[in-house]
């Protein structure tokens, strides 16, 4: 009889070899399951953490209070953001006080860094900030709080007009035309609409303000002529409507 012990050893070796692919498969499946579970867990943790941070610093809905201010004879609604929650500054310090509103003829602007407007009030500084507060301040800087800056309109117009001398920006000209028209200063509106149109004759608003300003001054025929000219270039519904309106008014006269 041959060496049975040796044969047994060979058989164990064979079984071991035979089971290696199964071991590898089982380990691979186990690793995949572990990886998947951990990934889900990590993702859940990350999402939770992100949600906490988001809720803390970026509330989904910023509640606003509404203040009604009078601008000339018109009424405008100005939205003032409420103070952000969980920031270690007192409510009073963060609230924009009523003092910042000028109930006279005013404009509002949200960008405090714009040199065109001067800031009304700096946010009070907090002494002895903790690291968490410093971090919060850093986040806050990246997502600037909106402050309302109000300036007297006459100054604003002057500054836009001054800036236009150097910028020759058709947007500025159009802005002035729009504002003057709203203020019923039709002559000025007509002038600025003309300038805006000279710089960019494809701006429909410049054509329309120009025509409307003319019509407002009773010059319907000229307004009709302007709108006709514009309608030869385009097929604007707004222009056509105005044209019909002015033609009707002209026929009544």
């Amino acid at each position: 009889m041959y060496d049975m012990k040796e044969l047994e050893k060979k058989w164990f070796k064979y079984k071991l070899k035979q089971s290696i692919p199964w071991f590898i498969l089982v380990i691979a499946v186990a690793l995949m399951i572990l990886y998947y579970n951990n990934r889900v867990k990590v993702n859940t943790l990350l999402v939770d953490y992100y949600n906490q941070i988001s809720e803390k610093y970026f509330p989904k809905k910023i509640e606003t209070n509404t203040t009604i201010v009078t601008l000339d004879n018109r009424t405008q609604v100005v939205e003032v953001p409420l103070p952000l929650p969980d920031i270690n500054e007192s409510e009073d310090e963060l609230n924009v006080s009523d003092e910042i509103f000028d109930t006279n003829d005013t404009l509002y602007e949200t960008n405090s860094s714009n040199p065109f407007f001067s800031s009304i009030k700096d946010a009070p500084e907090v002494d002895k900030k903790t690291p968490e507060e410093i971090l919060e301040d850093e986040i806050e800087k990246r997502h600037e709080k909106k402050y309302i800056h109000i300036k007297k309109s006459s100054d604003a117009y002057q500054e836009v007009e001054q800036r236009f001398v150097t910028s020759q920006d058709p947007e500025d000209a159009l802005f002035l035309a729009r504002i003057y028209y709203e203020k019923k200063n039709y002559k000025k509106a007509e002038e600025w609409a003309f300038i805006a149109n000279e710089l960019n004759d494809e701006s429909e608003e410049s054509w329309l303000i120009y025509a409307k300003a003319k019509a407002a001054r009773g010059e319907y025929l000229k307004a009709i002529h302007i709108l006709d000219s514009y309608l030869q270039k385009t097929n604007s519904l707004g222009a056509r409507k105005l044209l019909e309106e002015y033609k009707a008014k002209l026929s009544k006269k």
């Binding site: 041959y2 044969l7 047994e8 060979k10 058989w11 070796k13 064979y14 079984k15 070899k17």
Partner: peptide, 13 residues
Amino acid sequence: IEMAAIRLGYINV
């Protein structure tokens, strides 16, 4: 059976 196969050379270990 497997041991016999190893012994007869059907299975190379």
